[in-house]
Write a protein that binds this DNA or RNA. Sequence first.
DNA 1: CTACCTTTGTGCTGTATAACACGGTTTTAT
DNA 2: ATAAAACCGTGTTATACAGCACAAAGGTAG
Lengths: 233, 233
Amino acid sequence: MAKKELTEKEIADCIPDLWMPLTSEQREYLAQNFTVQKFKKNETIYCEGETPMHLMCLLTGKVKIYKEGVGGRSQIIRVIKDKEYFAYRAYFAEENFVTAAAAFEPCTICLIPMTAIMKLLSENNELAMFFIRQLSIDLGISDERTVNLTQKHIRGRLAESLLFLKDTYGVEEDEFTLSIYLSREDLANLSNMTTSNAIRTLSNFANEKLIAIDGRKIKIIEEDKLRKISKIG
Amino acid sequence: MAKKELTEKEIADCIPDLWMPLTSEQREYLAQNFTVQKFKKNETIYCEGETPMHLMCLLTGKVKIYKEGVGGRSQIIRVIKDKEYFAYRAYFAEENFVTAAAAFEPCTICLIPMTAIMKLLSENNELAMFFIRQLSIDLGISDERTVNLTQKHIRGRLAESLLFLKDTYGVEEDEFTLSIYLSREDLANLSNMTTSNAIRTLSNFANEKLIAIDGRKIKIIEEDKLRKISKIG
DNA sequence: CTACCTTTGTGCTGTATAACACGGTTTTAT
DNA sequence: ATAAAACCGTGTTATACAGCACAAAGGTAG
């Protein structure tokens, strides 16, 4: 199946942000602590309440970070695209996971023990700055999201989610079709609404020719108008 | 009025988390870049859109971090108590402020230029770890808050806010009265509801003897029951 | 003291959205 | 191929909450 040993070049390509700041000694150390794991579609990667052990970097595939809210309603907090790091926050905060992660699609994920990361952090400030920057960006997004999800109306929230998916995962060759195919339920959990309302609102958007839907394929037709809907709430 | 020069001892007492990890050279550098500023009650400390220049540490007083949402509705994102640091996230993320800050009460705030912080960070990993930990904790809280504000019902949200205020600012000598006196409007903005509903729900809690209200003074009587209301949503 | 503004409190009305029910369709499993 | 399950779509009903409007109380200024 997979090769047992990856070359340093291959690792460097996988995790450039982590790799670049390191000295050659540190790189060797990291290479020794580098493992790769595969996850099937919809497979859980980690659960709420578990103790974090590894920093993860998504090599290929798409991942959702979500939380089980009150009454079994689940809420998608953020989504991860390839080359993005995740699962480290809880360790740094000295907590267990408060979120769960699952694969939208088949995924390849690289795992690095947090103890190794801590050792590298104690030696390398540039690496520390990478995490400071990343956490700061994510915190800003999270704050923004809180206001959007609580204050915008259904149409605004769904429009925002669609644009967010476009900005995150991009589009296919036609330049319009979102390159992620979500179930209506996931779309609802991302937009803080019930599945029925996600379906209904999506249909409305399609009737208004703002988007075109074909099963799970969504084409963004009138991006400007969607942005407007998202903005005014 | 205030002394021109603070002794190192005084500074160390003000900002222990920042001070402790530093070498004596770094401490001297920090002392030279240390200024103190006072803010009146309700005065704005920084605005949405401004460019962040200083790390701030609240020495005395209470501060709210908030966002203007859609349609002028404002939302309190987090609150700061004394000895807490704030205003640094946006700089690290290389953004302008996406939130605003204002004084709940008269405040004394110490300011340190972010450029000085960056210099210290490049030299001192322990300091970097402090920010990584702090940002990680705040990100967890923010994610938690998103779910709470979107999924819980009014009673749950208000109960949570009251407990949150107790946990953050504590109580007076009687061990029950919250030591922060908020307007009903601020309470509403903290709990994602209209002022009328904050007033109404607060009255309901009082009628049910869960709390006692006397103007802006709030006594938490049945903390367990409030926690239960907050938990079940 | 009087006037004025802000905050608090209450009732009424409207509506956005959740909740439920049910039928059709597609995917998965055997 | 057939059963089972998951997903999609639509209509109906119920309700939590926002949005006024207005009155009373408290604070502030002249």
